[in-house]
Amino acid sequence: MTAAVLLTGFAPFDGADINESWQAVQAAAAQLRADGIEVAQLELPVEFDAAGYLLEAAVREHRPGLVVATGLAAGRRAVTPERVAINVRDARIPDNAGDRPVDEPVVPGGPVGHFSTLPIKAIVAALAQEPAIPAAVSQTAGTYVCNDVFYRLLHLLATDPGLAGMRGGFVHLPAAADLPVEDSARALVRAVRTCLATPEDVVLTGGAEH
């Protein structure tokens, strides 16, 4: 089975009843399909190893041209495409399987980091045209399962010749208290459309002092 786009979000974790990333993915996928774009969607468990394995399997099954993984960033008030995934696991809290790795690599022997292959600055520029949806480039995806999935995805795309040309990356979404899920879904739709229409990123300021 092939799909133009693979979207992923996460299951609830840390005692929460919902995870806004999965809610946003479901709504965005429905809208993109209504617009004629082939979309596969996948809810990932908040578990080291399991989430990455499931994502890798889905990439190989669906062979999309574009993979946009998403996760919840409680406390952030903006939609934040991530610039870089780092090869470290350092869990502040246990995952849903009870694992809590500290200072372990995501991929033993892998490079220190992988840069997103999404046009992250073009995404931020596009979202600036959407009313009431703040957006910014993020310089860190953390060291929990979101970063784990992000790194595993990019490492797969960088090392599997059979996936040459596939682009992928990660977008963090705010909690519903800071941005309604429908706005996060609208942001994802705009992000996907921007990726499909933008083969190379634009040159815009998107750095940070800290």
Rank of each mutant, 00 (worst) to 15 (best):
F170E: 01
A73S: 12
D103Q: 10
G15H: 09
V181I: 15
E43I: 04
T8L: 06
A197C: 06
S21P: 07
L42P: 00
V46M: 04
T159M: 05
T159K: 04
G168K: 01
R193E: 15
R167K: 09
Q41N: 06
T117C: 10
P105C: 11
A74V: 07
L188Y: 05
P199T: 12
D99S: 13
V68E: 00
L173R: 05
A176L: 08
V107L: 07
Y53I: 12
G98Y: 07
R33F: 12
I86T: 14
I93E: 11
I93R: 14
T198K: 10
E38T: 14
K121L: 13
G36I: 11
G207T: 15
D103P: 00
T143N: 13
R92V: 01
A164T: 14
G206F: 08
L173N: 01
D90V: 00
G165H: 12
P119A: 08
A177W: 03
L118P: 03
N19C: 09
A126Q: 09
L154F: 06
A132I: 05
S116W: 02
A177H: 09
E200K: 12
Q23Y: 00
R63K: 13
A126H: 12
A34S: 15
D178M: 09
V79D: 02
V202F: 05
V107M: 03
A97N: 10
V88E: 09
E130W: 04
E82N: 03
I123P: 02
L127F: 13
A3P: 02
L54T: 08
D14H: 15
A177M: 06
P199N: 08
G36L: 13
V112T: 14
V192A: 12
G206P: 02
T143Q: 13
A4P: 02
A197W: 09
Q31D: 14
C146E: 00
G165N: 12
G206Q: 06
D90G: 02
E200F: 09
A85H: 00
V46K: 01
